[in-house]
């Protein structure tokens, strides 16, 4: 079992008011499995992934009956061990490469640095490894990109470089938080296909966080649909059309479609009973 989370709860407190952003989320991810977590803004999908890497601000109150990654109990790890884990056995790809790449260092140096913190080797080996990684993420003209600064390359290339950096320590899990929402649709498809292939060839697990339900179903084995801090439904990606929960159905239904024109789009009516806490 790669990831095993049971009854995860995350709460924030501000001005004396307590707000539970995640209320009892559980999921399991086997090695080589791809799980999509889908939800609208405020559903708690991003902070769930961040909690797994312990990347939440200190004021977040995180509790869980069980939170394990690759056999390690996340809750009892020291901060130092967590640092080794992040960017080591677990890679984290964020939304916009513009903000996650260091603007004053070349792409090559950043990847080489990531490689050297987790592998033994000199500068030369690191540079060769960086070039190799850039080739693996299928960047055109990797030699040029190696010496380029982040602002000199496009958003799609930046995201590829980011992925290359995350692959450097040979992770067993890749967490991608809306990895393509800053990109064009054509680039989006390419990047997701690339992630898909890399996950397959390198035997990694994938946790893909997104707001786009149909999109996720193309690249995952199973999909977890979250709403207001709870999982409404978990189902195999292929069975999305047979979704049982009205929220999932509503999300799929309210999308405008190219092939099936409708005068009015069905509007999602939120049932207050969805907010009631489900029995564990």
């Amino acid at each position: 079992m790669l990831v095993d989370i049971e009854n995860l709860r995350i709460a924030f407190e501000s001005n004396g008011k307590r707000f539970e952003a995640v209320r009892g989320v559980s999921f399991k991810l086997e090695a080589r499995q791809k799980l999509g977590i889908v939800g609208e803004s405020g559903s708690g999908k991003s902070i769930t992934a961040r909690a797994l890497m312990r990347l939440l601000p200190p004021q977040a109150q995180v509790t869980a009956d069980r939170m394990r990654f690759d056999g390690i109990d996340i809750q009892s790890q020291s901060e130092r061990e967590m640092r080794k884990l992040r960017g080591g056995r677990a890679g984290f790809i964020l939304q916009d490469p513009k903000y996650s790449l260091n603007p004053v260092k070349t792409i090559g140096n950043q990847i080489a640095e990531a490689w050297r913190t987790h592998n033994k080797g000199g500068k030369k080996e690191a540079r060769e490894a960086a070039l190799d990684l850039l080739e693996q993420v299928m960047i055109r003209d990797p030699k040029r990109v190696l010496d380029a600064y982040p602002h000199e390359i496009s958003g799609g290339m930046g995201q590829r470089a980011m992925i290359a950096m995350m692959l450097a320590p040979n992770p067993t899990l890749l967490i991608a938080d809306e990895p393509t929402s800053a990109l064009d649709a054509s680039v989006e498809a390419e990047i997701l296909r690339l992630i898909d292939e890399l996950v397959d060839t390198r035997n990694m697990g994938l946790l893909l966080i997104s707001h786009d339900l149909p999109l996720v179903s193309h690249f995952c084995d199973k999909v977890s649909v979250m709403y207001m801090g709870q999982v409404m439904e978990e189902l195999a990606a292929g069975e999305l059309a047979q979704a049982k929960h009205p929220y999932t159905q509503g999300l799929l239904n309210c999308l405008p479609s190219l092939d099936h024109p409708r005068t009015d789009l069905p509007v999602l009516t939120r049932d207050p009973s969805w907010l009631e806490e489900k029995a564990q």
């Binding site: 649709a185 054509s186 989006e188 498809a189 339900l213 149909p214 999109l215 179903s217 193309h218 990606a237 292929g238 999305l240 059309a241 799929l252 999308l255 479609s257 190219l258 092939d259």
Partner: peptide, 12 residues
């Protein structure tokens, strides 16, 4: 663009 939109908007 049409192909892309078709292939990504419908669930599998």
């Amino acid at each position: 663009l049409v192909e892309l939109s078709r292939s990504l908007e419908t669930p599998v």
